[in-house]
Deep mutational scan, measured.
Amino acid sequence: MSIQHFRVALIPFFAAFCLPVFAHPETLVKVKDAEDQLGARVGYIELDLNSGKILESFRPEERFPMMSTFKVLLCGAVLSRVDAGQEQLGRRIHYSQNDLVKYSPVTEKHLTDGMTVRELCSAAITMSDNTAANLLLTTIGGPKELTAFLHNMGDHVTRLDRWEPELNEAIPNDERDTTMPAAMATTLRKLLTGELLTLASRQQLIDWMEADKVAGPLLRSALPAGWFIADKSGASERGSRGIIAALGPDGKPSRIVVIYTTGSQATMDERNRQIAEIGASLIKHW
């Protein structure tokens, strides 16, 4: 058993032996400061991975655009179909130039040979490839079927209504393609630790998130040596930015963190910096 498999397999085991986890309101002070700095709403939640207890939250039940963070949920739905014998990670999917949409750094290189379902999930999560996400959405029946999958998990909040890139429109008060921090954190925890997916599929999902290559300026920039993080970021119109993550010290995840912001006029660099500073406060007061 690899170190990674050891880590995921023991998450339920550690729940019975973990020390009490204490919240630190200092992080919420930073979240509120980020709102002031960005001139935008910020949603935040910090969840204990083992118990599911909410440690801190700010606007946990307000809607925010999901942006590309939905791609983790999408690959969770794909893995659920794999577990049920309805899909194979090794199945190759062929597509054409007409299928390519904006920001497809991986799929645009494989027009001649296509990509496997496994490769598409990797591209969608680690590189946020939009065509990969659309191709995967097609395999499960489209955005409405992803919403149905989430409903069956008990998440009646999170919804996907459109495809890439239209889902990134982020119109104020538009509930399409949105979630709430509390709903996203709970759903992510179920995917990573619950019985919905097999152990192998849970491991695969967290491996893809751990290999994320496009979230460096966010929480990863504040991470001390030896800490673990598996994450997925997102960005969209109207100053929207977000990240969902499982992270913790000693090389294993122990908390879920979800951060969303929307409605800012700030630059992408400034949005990144504010999220990184929230992460730094979280780690300092861990």
Rank of each mutant, 00 (worst) to 15 (best):
S2R: 12
I3T: 13
I3S: 14
F6D: 08
V8H: 15
A9G: 15
L10I: 15
A16T: 15
V21Q: 03
V21C: 14
V21I: 10
F22S: 14
P25N: 08
T27M: 05
D36S: 14
Q37A: 14
L38M: 09
L38V: 06
R41I: 07
V42T: 04
G43E: 01
G43L: 01
Y44T: 01
G52N: 07
K53V: 14
I54D: 09
I54M: 11
E56T: 09
E56V: 05
S57T: 09
S57G: 08
S57F: 08
F58L: 07
P65T: 05
M66R: 01
F70C: 05
V78T: 05
V78Y: 02
S80F: 13
R81H: 08
G85M: 09
G85Q: 10
E87D: 10
Q88S: 14
Q88D: 14
R92E: 08
I93R: 01
H94S: 12
H94R: 13
Y95D: 02
S96I: 09
S96G: 13
N98I: 12
N98K: 14
D99S: 11
Y103V: 04
P105L: 06
H110Y: 10
G114A: 14
M115I: 06
R118A: 13
E119R: 04
A124G: 05
T126G: 10
N130S: 00
N130R: 00
A133E: 00
A133R: 05
A133I: 00
N134R: 01
N134T: 01
L136R: 01
L137D: 05
T138Y: 13
P143T: 04
P143V: 02
E145D: 12
E145R: 12
L146Y: 00
L146A: 03
L146Q: 00
H151L: 11
G154T: 00
V157E: 08
R159I: 03
E164I: 03
P165V: 05
E166V: 07
L167F: 00
N168K: 02
N168G: 04
N168A: 04
A170S: 13
A170I: 13
A170P: 09
P172F: 08
P172K: 08
D174R: 01
R176K: 09
A183G: 05
T187K: 00
L188T: 07
R189C: 13
R189N: 08
T193A: 14
T193R: 14
E195V: 05
A200T: 12
A200L: 09
S201Y: 05
S201M: 08
R202L: 03
D207N: 14
A211Q: 15
K213P: 03
K213E: 12
G216D: 10
L219Q: 01
R220W: 00
S221C: 10
S221T: 12
S221L: 08
A222F: 07
A222C: 13
L223C: 10
P224N: 04
G226H: 09
G226Y: 04
I229Y: 01
I229L: 07
A230G: 08
A230S: 04
D231R: 03
K232G: 00
K232R: 05
G234D: 02
S236N: 11
E237G: 05
R238T: 15
R238D: 15
G239R: 05
S240W: 02
G242I: 00
G242L: 01
G242N: 04
A246G: 04
A246R: 01
G251S: 09
G251L: 07
P253C: 07
P253N: 06
S254P: 05
S254H: 09
S254T: 15
Y260D: 01
G263D: 11
S264N: 08
A266T: 11
T267M: 08
M268S: 06
R271G: 07
N272E: 07
I275P: 02
A276S: 09
E277K: 07
L282S: 03
L282T: 07
I283Y: 09
K284T: 11
W286C: 15
